[in-house]
Amino acid sequence: MDRLEILKTYKLYINGKFPRSESGRYYTPEGRGGKALGNICQSSRKDLRESVLAARGALGNWAPRAAFNRSQILYRMGEMLEGRRAQFEDELKQQGSTAAAARKEVETAIDLAVYYAGWCDKYQQVFSAVNPVSTAHFNFSVYEPVGVVAAIAPENSALAGLLGTLLPIIAGGNTCIVLASTGKPLSAITLAEVLATSDLPGGVVNILTGDRKELLPIFATHMDINSLVASDLTKTQIADIKQASVNNLKRIVIHKEDVSKLEDPYAILKTQEIKTTWHPIETSIAGGGKY
């Protein structure tokens, strides 16, 4: 007799834990050949609120960390992705990818992690500045994380697109709430399992699944989200979130590029603020004894 397969339960990832949606709602996206992918949590506005609290709470731990340490943690993510290649490929295939495409996407995703791991402690060196002001001051401009970032991952690239969205955000010291692909959510939840065991502090990345249309306006109007990064939005959706996010002047980043292949330090800068600091430079009294 054949052994009965154990089905995986897919949950949300908030503050380093795996809760179900508080709403009890779920949806059942279809995978290859119309086969149901499982009962996926349909996040509510309250789940979103909880994620923002988690992200805000984690910011004080993540942002001030040594950039070198963030780099090591992102690299560790790459190592763990490599270790779970088979599972990610399998899920991508379930979600409709060919075997070759699945293998390619997982490889791209791992390489993205290694790529951004390297930038964590280098973008500051490349893009900050010491400004030669005319007065007796030392003046420098550095990048700082914008804070809590909401990220809408692309719809079609379930793993590489997700990583291409969130890696530049966390590489720069932000914390985030990522809304996974609605139609292909499995990779996101499995990624959460990787994150949970990868030295990344809980709350730095929070992953929600559910309905974009429902959650977009809630992301846009939330007063404690500093920036909103999105891919694959329609013109109307872009206009709507821009309008709705005016209440706290969120920094809106619309990716026009394919983020699943986005190896670009400028992507990190999009969720950074520039801080310029001034300090006087003393001059001693000239003179000395010449009696």
Partner: peptide
Amino acid sequence: GVVWGNTFNQFDPASPFGGFKESGF
């Protein structure tokens, strides 16, 4: 966006100026 240590209201063409949060972007 601009922090003055032991000085205040200094401006220079070489020094970037602008805000965080609702002070603009």
